[in-house]
């Protein structure tokens, strides 16, 4: 009982979303905290990823929403583990997969950048589509 409370506090303490790079570990954490996974596939060469990372994912409102509902897995497509390549059909960047760790199922996918307010609207829809109670 202590572990979930502790990790929940960790990711919320800084008002920041927890970003991990290991998919399996993120699945465990997400299950424990009752959150979904947001797998962010990006490339250093894509200007639209730059936009997401500098202005959208770090937007205070986006960040607050993500930290409450999702665990982020950040994957560089130029350095992607084979297991993920097989699991998800990432044909471009930025590519975001919303994933239910309990059912092991993709909830939704998103290709391309968005502005912060549009992105929050999308996150809210995805949260409703998932089996999370607090959306």
């Amino acid at each position: 009982m202590l572990i979930p409370v502790l990790s929940l506090t960790l990711s919320l303490a800084f008002g920041q979303a927890l970003w991990l790079s290991d998919f399996d570990k993120a699945v465990d954490v997400a299950k424990r905290e009752g959150k979904n996974l947001m797998i962010y596939f990006s490339s250093d060469h894509c200007p639209y990823c730059w936009q997401m990372e500098n202005y959208v994912l770090v937007d205070p409102d986006v960040e607050r929403y993500i930290s409450d509902k999702f665990i982020v897995v950040s994957v560089d497509v130029d350095d992607m583990p084979e297991s993920l390549e097989e699991k998800f059909n990432v044909f471009g960047t930025p590519y975001i997969v919303f994933y239910d760790p309990k059912r092991g199922k993709v909830i939704s996918e998103l290709f391309g950048s968005r502005e912060a307010d549009d992105f929050i609207a999308i996150l809210k829809q995805i949260c409703k589509k998932s089996n999370l109670r607090r959306c």
Binding site: W19, S21, S42, E53, V58, S74, D76
Partner: peptide
């Protein structure tokens, strides 16, 4: 900017 995260570690 001091806002961006390191994509590997998630740290600012």
């Amino acid at each position: 900017t001091g806002l961006r995260k390191d994509k590997k570690t998630g740290k600012i």
